[in-house]
Amino acid sequence: MNMIKNGKKKIAVGAALTVATAGLVTVGLGTPASAVTCNKTVNANVSGGQASWSTSCSAGKMRIAGWVKDTRADGKCAQVKAMYSGGTQWSAKACPADTDNPTHIRYFDFNGAGSDVPVYLFTV
């Protein structure tokens, strides 16, 4: 009987650790606001970060321009990435400890081939 109770405890602890670990793995990775298309404006928020960007397209290329802001003094930074078919482009990190940037805002201007590009806001 004790073996069954111990076995159940181990399974419960293992499941809890798996759930906790899965949560840690996904924290900070961000989720796509959407695979953005041409001529759109997106406002995105995650815990500790905020961003806004607009898109435009011309001659098979998409421009994504906007800003990212750190919104929490938690030691993490906010960042945006766009995953073009030719490679990923990253914004500068907006960090709470930026003495040269007291507003905690960084601007970005990405350009690349495509008309349907996943864009992510996340904290690191």
Rank of each mutant, 00 (worst) to 15 (best):
Y107K: 11
V36M: 00
K8S: 09
G87C: 14
V19F: 15
A59V: 15
F108Q: 06
S56W: 09
V19L: 14
F108G: 14
L29H: 03
Q89W: 08
I11K: 15
S54M: 10
A113E: 12
F110H: 05
S56F: 06
N45M: 07
M1D: 12
W67S: 10
Y84Q: 02
A59L: 13
G49F: 01
V36L: 00
G14A: 14
G28N: 09
F108T: 13
V13M: 08
P118F: 10
C95V: 11
A16W: 09
K10G: 05
A12K: 13
S34C: 08
A44F: 01
C95Q: 06
S56N: 11
T31Q: 07
G86S: 15
G14C: 04
A35M: 03
T123N: 07
R72Y: 13
D116N: 11
W53K: 01
G14K: 11
T71K: 11
S47I: 14
G30E: 08
V25I: 13
S115I: 01
C38E: 02
A20P: 02
A15F: 15
C38K: 02
R63T: 15
S115Y: 07
A12W: 03
N39V: 07
G75A: 12
Y107D: 04
A73D: 15
K8G: 09
N39H: 13
A113Y: 12
F122K: 11
I4V: 14
W90Q: 05
G75T: 13
W53C: 03
A92P: 03
V80T: 07
A113W: 02
I64P: 03
T26E: 01
G60T: 14
T21Q: 01
T103A: 04
V124T: 15
R63K: 15
G49D: 01
